[in-house]
Design a protein around this nucleic acid. Structure first.
Lengths: 253, 253
DNA sequence: CAATCTCTGTACGCTTGCGCACATTGCATC
DNA sequence: GATGCAATGTGCGCAAGCGTACAGAGATTG
C-alpha cells in the first residue's frame, strides 16, 4: 500500500549528483546515511528502444539499475528463436550473475521502450557491498525475486495459452513503465512470448474483442485494466504479489 | 576433468560425524579447516521416493544438501498441473530462498528416486556463513547456477518438443543419480515435463525406436547415451556446461 | 491361482499453434 | 500525392499435443 510510485507524484524524492531523478526502488530504499557513497559512482544512461545491453557470452562489467522504462531478459537459441524470461523495471537491476562473481552473460538484455538506468562498474559495486549491508541485502533479495519470476514464467510458458500470456505480459510491462499506452510491435511481442508474429495478431484480436485493449500500428493501449487482469493467467497476480510483498517488507526486508 | 564422481570410486573421501559418506559437492569443496563446524550440524536424512520436502506456501526452515538421488523442484498450479523447473542432485541444495531470508516456499520439492541429503536448520546455517566465506560463496554461486537452469528450462518449455525435453530430462536425471537405469513411471514424467502421460508414452516410443532407451513398467534404461544426447535439445549441453564450468572453478570459484 | 491394481499402449476427435504466403493499411519521405 | 517501407490482418495446410477413454500387460495380494 505504501508503494512508491514517484512517476505519478510531483517532485521525485531524490536525485543523483547531476540532478537526474532517481526512481529505482532499490536505490530509494537505502538508508540515507549508509550508502551515499554509491550515488556518486552511478552513471546516468539513456537506453534507446531495442538497445542491447548484452548478448549471451558477453563479458559483463556493469550493473544497471532500472530507472524508467523497462529491460527484457531473453534466452536466445542458435536458430534465432527467443523467449523472454524476465522483465526489469525500476524495481530491480540488470546483471544478476555479477553479484556472485560470474562475468559471462547467458542471456540477452534489451531495452523495451525508451529507458533510463544508472550504471555502475561491477568492481566498484562489489567493493562497496561490505560497507553497505542494506544494499547488499536488497540486491540479493532482488536476485531471489527475479528467480521466482523466471520460475513462474517457466511454468507459464509451458501451460498457458498465447492470449493469456500476452495479457500477462502487457500488464507486467504496463506496471513497469507506469503507462497504459505501450509502443510495441507485434513482431517484438512475438519474440517476447516465443511465438509467431501472426499468433500475436490473433491473440491481440481476442483481447481487443473482449474490450480489454485497443491496438494500432506499433501501439497497444490498455483500456480496461481490470478486465485484462481477468484475461491473463494467474501468473500475473502471483508475480505481482511476490514483488509487492518484498517491497512492502513483509519478507524480512 | 577433475570432476568428483565418488559413487563410482572406491572409498568416499569424507564422512560426517556418524559415518555417513558425504557426496555433496558443495560440502566436499569446502576447505578442510574452515567449515568443519558445519559438519557437526548436519543431519543425515533418507528421502523415500516422492517424498515432499515442501509445498508452495510452506514455511521453510531447513536447507537440504543433496547427497544421493535427486530432488525435483516443481511449479504447481491450482488446477493440479505441474512442471518441473529445477533438478537438485549432489551438486547443490534445496532451499534457495532461505539464503536471502525468505521463509516461504513458492515451489514444490519432491524426491525422485530414493534420495539422501544432509539437513541443516536455516538459522544455524545462516549464523555460520559470516565465518565460512567459502561456503557462503559456494551457496550463492549455486543459487546463480540454479537460476541459470530455470532460465534455460523456461525457454526449453516454450520452444522444444516433448521427446527432446524427455531426452534432456533423462540425461539430467541420470547425471544426478549416477545411473543409467531410472525407476520412473510415465505418469510421473508427465508431471515433470508438464504434459500428458500418454504424450510421454509417445515420446518414449520415439526415443526407444531410435535405439536410445528401453522402457518397461516403471523403468527407463539408457542404452545409448551418446545417441540420446543427440536426441535431446541443446539445452542439455548448455546446462551441463554451466554446472561443469562452475565446479571446475573457471568462473572465479 | 484368482482377483486386483498399476502402468502402459493406443486410438479418436479436437484445439492450438506453426510455417508460409499474400494482401492491406498506416506512416514517412521525397 | 506518389512511392516505399514497416506493421498488421488473414488464410491455408499441417503437425503437435490435449482430453478422454479403453484395452492389455505386468505386478501384487489374498
Amino acid at each position: 500500500m505504501a508503494n512508491i510510485r514517484p512517476l505519478s507524484g510531483t517532485a521525485p524524492p531524490q536525485s543523483d549528483g547531476n540532478g537526474n531523478p532517481i526512481y529505482n526502488e532499490v536505490l530509494l530504499s537505502l538508508p540515507a546515511g549508509e550508502c551515499k557513497d554509491l550515488f556518486s559512482k552511478l552513471e546516468f544512461v539513456r537506453l534507446k528502444v531495442h538497445h542491447v545491453l548484452h548478448e549471451p557470452g558477453d563479458f559483463l562489467k556493469s550493473v544497471y539499475f532500472g530507472n524508467s522504462g523497462m529491460v527484457s531478459i531473453l534466452t536466445v537459441f542458435s536458430d534465432g528463436k527467443s523467449v523472454e524470461v524476465g522483465l526489469v523495471g525500476k524495481e530491480g537491476f540488470v546483471g544478476l550473475p555479477l553479484l556472485v562473481g560470474f562475468h559471462t552473460a547467458f542471456t540477452r538484455a534489451v531495452s523495451q521502450i525508451d529507458a533510463t538506468a544508472f550504471r555502475v562498474d561491477a568492481e566498484t559495486l562489489m567493493a562497496l557491498l561490505p560497507h553497505c549491508p542494506t544494499l547488499d541485502r536488497r540486491l540479493r533479495q532482488y536476485s531471489q525475486i527475479a528467480t521466482m519470476q523466471v520460475t513462474q514464467v517457466a511454468a507459464c510458458n509451458r501451460l498457458h495459452e498465447v492470449h493469456e500470456r500476452l495479457a500477462r505480459w502487457l500488464l507486467m510491462c504496463s506496471d513497469r513503465v507506469s503507462s497504459n499506452e505501450l509502443p510495441l510491435t507485434q513482431e517484438f511481442l512475438g519474440q517476447m512470448l516465443g511465438t509467431r508474429r501472426s499468433s500475436v495478431t490473433v491473440a491481440a484480436g481476442i483481447l481487443q474483442q473482449a474490450g480489454t485493449i485497443t491496438t494500432s500500428r506499433g501501439d497497444v493501449k490498455i483500456v480496461d485494466r481490470r478486465k485484462l487482469e481477468g484475461a491473463a493467467c494467474d501468473c500475473y497476480a502471483i508475480m505481482q504479489r511476490q514483488v509487492r510483498e518484498w517491497q512492502n517488507g513483509s519478507r524480512h526486508a
